[in-house]
């Protein structure tokens, strides 16, 4: 039996999917969720094979929700959005359906998924998510998970980002949060007028800097408002100088 979760904030939209799924005997809807938080919990609890996901939902959107899920199931997006996002899907061959969805189109999507459940799928998903959440970060927030809670960090609250093995640590006045992303990702997606990669392991928010001191040889130290000292490499110092106009 294939386990499926529906995540959409409109009950009627879930109603359609449920009705369409009756056609498939081997698919079972294990849970319906009205927002992304419920979605994250339900996915962790049930480990579904496939989820149907809306994009615009309360609090966190569909993309942000997926970022918070560690073991990502296959996803079929169902959305009324017909914007640039859709192009990203097409390029990455992940299926998506536009509301209102016809039953035939819906069946095609499910059958396509069934025939294509292959090891390459999650990677593709990852690249879609990178494209999509890059734009989300360019917007103005980052969604992280702390224990079972979800935290939304406004970009302007970020003090600095630190490399931490395969993760990055996002430092804010409320503490540090781990996120399963790369330094390169944030270097590219954050506003370059506000965030500088000063070192292989550090990206800092420039309005946090109070002082820059020379350190060893050609390196420097940036002192942040809360007293944290951050290493600045030679190239990082050059970038910082041009940005601050000194």
């Amino acid at each position: 039996m294939t386990k499926v979760i529906l995540i959409d904030d409109e009950p009627l939209a879930r109603e359609v999917i449920k009705a369409y799924l009756k056609y498939f005997d081997d698919i079972e809807v294990v849970q319906e969720c009205g927002d992304g938080f419920e979605g994250v919990k339900a996915i962790q609890q049930h480990q579904p094979d496939l989820i149907f996901l809306d994009i615009q939902m309360p609090k966190i959107n569909g993309f942000e929700m997926l970022e918070l899920v560690d073991a990502k199931p296959s996803v079929i997006f169902i959305t009324a959005y017909d914007s640039y996002a859709i192009k990203a899907f097409e390029a990455n061959a992940v299926d998506y359906l536009l509301k209102p969805v016809s039953e035939q189109r819906f069946r095609e999507a499910v059958l396509k998924w069934k025939s294509k459940v292959s090891p390459t799928a999650p990677q593709r998903m990852e690249s879609v998510l990178n494209t999509m959440s890059a734009t989300a970060a360019q917007q103005n927030r980052i969604v992280v998970k702390t224990g079972s809670k979800v935290k939304i960090i406004p970009v302007h609250d970020i003090q600095y980002i630190e490399a931490d093995d395969d993760f990055v640590k996002i430092h804010t006045p409320e503490g540090a949060f781990l996120k399963n992303k790369t330094m390169n990702f944030y270097e590219q997606s954050l506003d370059p007028a506000q965030f500088v990669r000063v070192h292989r392991s550090y990206i800092i928010h420039i309005n946090q800097i109070t002082k820059i001191e020379p350190y060893q040889k050609e390196t420097h130290l940036a002192i942040l408002r809360d007293g944290t000292k951050i290493a600045v490499s030679k190239t990082g110092y050059v970038k910082l100088k041009t940005l601050l106009g000194i």
């Binding site: 409109e10 009627l12 109603e15 359609v16 009705a19 009324a80 017909d82 509301k99 969805v101």
Partner: peptide, 18 residues
């Protein structure tokens, strides 16, 4: 808002069933 229109049509689609 086109989203409004499409979402409404989707709701109608669902109501036809239920």
């Amino acid at each position: 808002q086109p989203h409004f229109l499409f979402n409404s049509l989707n709701s109608i689609n669902a109501l036809i069933l239920v």
